[in-house]
């Protein structure tokens, strides 16, 4: 294993940085999509409710590999081609966005109805109720599922190996076949994921306790 680390170490670090960039960029975008879709779904405007429902059904049930292939190989047919990196970011953010929307919506449903009624009674509009009263409480109650999603999302970046995005999955494939010792390379990358994701999990645990609403 040490000889593999020696030979492929630098490329592993590059792969890791690419994984981190894809994961973080896509999660930021996914959060945006998730908030928007969740807001649409709880709004009193029928077309938005429908469209958001369609979005969630589509992106939650499509296998990520299919979505990646669609984005990477089909968008160029529409003259909208993206690089492997940006295809991965787009596909992942659309995919995780659907899950985030569902998580945020489940958080919204935990907010007591009286809060909304009180806010409505003092004359706040839908957007104000959602933005000032409901979402701040909803988000705090769903830190744990968001953390789990972030971990799953980070693992999902490896699917970008299908479109050669240069991240860790792609690195595994290239270094694996180049070194003729696939097992060791894949094991090494697996350990990298464990070393990063297990502490990330505990970090979300701490965050959860910090922001929990004591009732």
């Amino acid at each position: 294993m040490l000889d593999i680390v020696g030979e492929y170490g630098p490329r592993l670090v590059v792969g890791l940085l690419t994984t981190a960039r894809i994961a973080l960029l896509a999660f930021a975008l996914a959060f945006l999509f998730g908030l928007l879709i969740a807001a649409f779904r709880v709004s009193p405007v029928p077309p938005l409710v429908r469209a958001a429902g369609l979005y969630v059904t589509f992106f939650r049930n499509i296998p990520l590999a299919v979505l990646m292939i669609l984005v990477f190989f089909v968008l160029p047919d529409l003259d909208l081609g993206l690089s492997g990196f940006w295809s991965a970011v787009l596909a992942l953010s659309l995919y995780s966005g659907a899950y985030l929307a569902e998580i945020i919506r489940s958080g919204i449903n935990t907010v007591a109805a009286g809060e909304v009624e009180a806010a409505r009674a003092v004359g706040l509009t839908f957007t104000q109720v959602l933005g000032l009263i409901v979402l701040p409480q909803a988000l705090r109650s769903v830190v744990a599922p968001i953390g789990s999603l972030f971990i799953a999302h980070t693992k999902n970046t490896t699917v970008a190996a299908l479109i050669s995005a240069g991240e860790l999955g792609d690195f595994t494939r290239r270094a694996g076949s180049a070194s003729a010792n696939y097992f060791t390379v894949a094991l090494l990358v697996a350990i990298v994921f464990v070393v990063i994701l297990v502490p990330t999990g505990s970090l979300f645990g701490v965050l959860e306790r910090r922001v929990a609403i004591k009732r």
């Binding site: 971990i151 693992k155 999902n156 970046t157 490896t158 699917v159 190996a161 999955g169 595994t172 494939r173 694996g176 076949s177 696939y182 097992f183 894949a186 094991l187 990358v189 697996a190 994921f193 464990v194 994701l197 297990v198 999990g201």
Partner: peptide, 14 residues
């Protein structure tokens, strides 16, 4: 904590 794709690599090539 390990991505499924790595299991596929480990099994198929390892």
């Amino acid at each position: 904590a390990v991505p499924v794709l790595l299991f596929i690599f480990l099994a198929n090539f390892g």
